[in-house]
Design a binder for these strands. Structure first.
Length: 821
DNA sequence: AGCACGCCGACT
DNA sequence: GTCGGCGTGCTC
């Protein structure tokens, strides 16, 4: 008999969006037993007050040992929102990049899907505030509460002007004036619009006619509104009220009257934020012979290989090939993910893809707000979007069935996330994701990464080439300017060689445009005392302050610390400061002196704070309203200008001398990509590279368009010094505001890890920038050779970090582990 | 991560 | 003596 009254208690493992080492077990109330499913979200309390939404990872009937599980508070979803595929992908990311699963979840889910509670301070409605003595901090809070009823802790902090209001709140609580409540933040707000339609009573033609007659001559404005509405909305389906009133210049008060009199119904309807401009005139995607051939080769490669590297020189029309491949995936009713670096998400490219695919394309822009991101997530999940253009975070969208992933500009280092955790590489992760969907991957680049080309050599990837620029676009001529010679003969004016100046002038004379590339922002990176060589540095970071002329301040690139420019040297009292180096601002200023008649514009982080500013600079240049465009890296990304003749790389040395094993690779890619902007149809463009090391092989390879030579040389270097792709790297950084503690912690960590890996550990050492935001940094690198078990080493390192964290002295030292840095 | 608890210095 | 700082440990 007792069997009848027994039920099975169900326990679930819940993943929380927090950096926790493990999952937590909750109990399900009996009435919800049937609704439990892996991948659904539940609401749980975690800790004394916080409430989170977590994801169900597994279901069990065995009660946990040693503690009483809390009950879940609610189930949010009626269907699982995280599929097994996604979950196993998250697990892979967490394991490979050595982070917590909760961190992956936190990064992968749009904010609207992660509800979190917030403590709210509420005033008792019957609180007798007059009889209670309040101090000067408490009073403004009570005043505010009288006005709005409830505020958050943050707001209380702000009102009191103090950091820690806990005591204050506690005191108010003791006085019986307030109570605290956890309020769940509703993250997604559907967008609602007001609509108008004729009410039931006036939906017939006869009723309308009678109304018209009664209004005629008395209420002309109302009559006007009605006539417009009837003519526009014959079937009485409803119209957008604001649009209707505005567009036809109608009287809002007449509309209100009609609503009040029951003639019209005013109602709210949920609308979508992500609205397509409607299907456009779709263009044909005709491939050139070269492109057709590349497409065929990719198809052939796909028979054996899951990943194909498409190496097409700049302006060879890789996009056309992608489009044809995407069409095919769509024909098979599969989804497509098109990844590209954040700053390449320019209208130029989006417009091009949308022209072919119309409303099947969805763009996941980082500028979208939480609500828009939520809608995009839903559309991808519901397969309303078949092609998604996205930056690296696109790999976390809930694709149902991917057929193809394109990673455009695969060499770009912005595919690697470095902060916050998970520190994933979107290209490498995309390959794993594709594998789970049994989808194919195309990696595209004019200058493939050393890693990817090495995979081609090892026959892990297929390789397809696009060697020709399409429709007669010629490759530019290269000229290397030796700045040592220029300096010796005193020919140069600051950063500009005489040769470059004469070419700039010639371009302007011919009404042709110029791009100058200088990868430094601000006015000058270093100011220095003329006498004693003292220079202003950031007080939080180990770096000199960059001078910005327009804002007239000295600013730190890392933390934003800024001060007024210094005219008196605090070290020796000298009044003369010297400027060293060139940022884009200074380049612009000096160029104005050399060619005062030229219209000059600047494209850098500073000048493009807003989206419109960026677009305007680009459009102005496209429309030839600007003659010379000076820019940082931004200028290298996927922009094509018809009338561009001259590209100048002002300081090639800066990039070449960067202290990093990828400096040569990055420089080669950067220079080749900038040079690729000079892609004109009729006349050959010119690229000038200013350097004090013209003999540098990287420069020679760029000039000769020899990717293969560059690769051969670079891969030998990498092999010689055991760098990727011959070894895998794990970078470990320890950070703390006490210099000596950081140093000691570094030695301790190194000792722990060396126990097993020995010489594979390099360091610890002070990195190039040894202090950021007030924390000193100690860095070490583990080089894992192919004969080692990567997983085993990672496990070991994980264990050692755990052990290290257990040492009391080093508890507050922040440890960051970066896999494939 | 966020929060409570507990231990120490600087002020009424 | 109390307030408020931060270091430490825990969350099913």
């Amino acid at each position: 008999l007792s069997d009848l009254f027994e039920y099975t208690a169900i326990y679930i493992e819940v993943l929380l969006p927090l950096p926790l080492a493990k999952e937590y077990t909750y109990r399900v109330p009996q009435e919800l037993n049937d609704e439990i499913d892996v991948g659904k979200r539940v609401v749980v309390q975690f800790g004394k007050k916080k409430i989170y939404s977590g994801v169900i990872l597994s279901i069990s009937e065995r009660p946990p040992e040693g503690y009483q599980a809390k009950y879940i508070l609610a189930i949010i979803d009626s269907f699982p929102i995280i599929s097994d595929k996604m979950l196993s992908f998250w697990r892979w990311i967490a394991e490979y990049y050595m982070c917590k699963l909760g961190e992956v979840m936190n990064n992968a889910l749009p904010a609207a899907l992660k509800l979190q509670s917030q403590s709210k301070i509420n005033l008792y409605p019957d609180a007798n505030t007059a009889d209670v003595l309040l101090d000067k901090f408490e009073e403004p809070i009570i005043e505010k509460l009288k006005l709005v009823g409830s505020i958050s802790i943050d707001e209380a902090d702000e009102i009191s002007g103090r950091k820690n209001t806990y005591k204050l709140i506690h005191s108010l609580y003791e006085k019986g004036l307030i109570y605290i409540e956890e309020e769940l933040l509703e993250r997604y707000k559907p967008k609602v619009k007001k609509f108008l339609k004729r009410s039931e009573a006036f939906s017939t033609e006869q009723a309308m006619q009678e109304l018209f007659t009664s209004l005629d001559g008395k209420a002309t404005l109302q009559l006007h509104v009605l006539m417009k509405l009837v003519s526009l909305d014959k079937n009485n389906e409803g119209v957008d009220k604001n649009k209707f009133v505005k567009k036809h210049g109608l009287s809002p008060s007449s509309v209100s009257t009609l609503v009040k009199n029951g003639v019209l119904d005013l109602y709210e309807k949920q609308v979508e934020r992500i609205v397509y401009k409607g299907r456009q005139e779709l263009a044909e995607n005709e491939l050139t012979n070269d492109q057709e051939e590349a497409y065929d080769q990719i198809k052939t490669n796909f028979e054996e290989q899951d990943v194909v590297l498409l190496q097409g020189i700049t302006s060879s029309g890789k996009t056309h090939v992608y489009i044809k491949l995407m069409e095919e995936a769509l024909a098979l009713n599969k989804q497509v993910l098109y990844l590209l670096p954040e700053i390449s998400l320019t209208t130029q490219l989006i417009r091009r893809i949308q022209t072919y695919f119309g409303d099947q394309v969805l763009v996941n822009h980082s500028r979208f707000n939480n609500n828009e991101r939520y809608e995009i997530w839903q559309k991808v999940k519901n397969r309303e979007a078949t092609i998604v253009l996205a930056p690296r975070s696109g790999i976390f969208l809930p694709f149902q069935e991917l057929g193809l992933i394109i990673v455009d500009e695969e060499h770009e280092n912005s595919y690697k996330q470095s902060e916050p955790s998970p520190r994933y590489h979107a290209r490498d992760s995309a390959i794993v994701l594709a594998h789970k969907h049994k989808a194919k991957v195309v990696l595209g680049s004019a200058t493939p990464s050393v890693e990817s080309m090495n995979n081609v050599r090892n026959e892990k990837f297929g390789l397809v080439l696009l060697k020709n620029r399409y429709s007669g676009v010629k490759l530019p001529e290269f000229r290397v300017v030796d700045m040592r010679q220029e300096k010796k003969r005193k020919l140069n004016k600051g950063l500009f060689s005489s040769e470059l100046i004469s070419e700039i002038k010639q371009s302007l004379n011919q009404k042709e445009q110029v791009i100058l590339f200088q990868n430094r922002k601000g006015y000058v990176p270093i100011t220095e005392c003329n006498e004693c060589a003292w220079s202003p540095r950031c007080i939080h970071c180990d770096i000199t302050l960059t001078y910005y002329r327009k804002e007239n301040c000295l600013r730190c690139h890392f933390c934003g610390y800024n001060i007024k420019p210094i005219s008196l040297c605090p070290a020796c009292g000298n009044t003369a400061m010297r400027m060293i180096g060139y940022g884009t601002e200074r380049v612009e200023e000096e160029l104005k002196l050399i060619v005062p008649e030229a219209r000059i514009d600047r494209l850098d982080y500073q000048s493009t704070r807003t989206k419109t500013a960026f677009e305007k600079i680009i459009t102005d240049f496209e429309n030839r309203d600007t003659d010379v465009l000076i820019g940082t890296q931004m200028i290298t990304k996927g922009l094509d200008f018809e009338n561009l003749r001259l590209v100048g790389i002002l300081d090639a040395d800066h990039s070449l001398n960067f202290p990093d094993f990828r400096a040569a690779e990055r420089s080669f890619q950067l220079f080749t990509q900038v040079a690729g902007r000079a892609g004109r149809r009729n006349n050959q463009g010119l690229v000038m590279i200013q350097t004090s090391r013209p003999e540098n092989p990287v420069i020679q390879h760029v000039v000769k368009h020899e990717y293969n030579d560059f690769f051969e040389e670079e891969i030998q270097e990498r092999e010689k010094f055991n760098y990727p792709p011959f070894a895998r790297l794990i970078k470990m950084s320890l950070m703390h505001k006490d210099y000596e503690l950081t140093e000691k912690a570094g030695d301790m960590m190194a000792m722990l890890i060396r126990e097993k890996v020995g010489d594979m550990l390099l360091g610890p050492e002070e990195p190039y920038v040894s202090k950021i935001r007030g924390r000193f940094i100690r860095q070490m690198m583990i080089k894992i050779t192919p004969d080692q078990n990567l997983k085993a080493v990672k496990h070991f390192v994980g264990d050692m970090v755990f052990q290290f964290k257990g040492i009391k002295e080093y508890k507050q030292v922040r440890v960051v582990v970066d896999v494939d840095p």
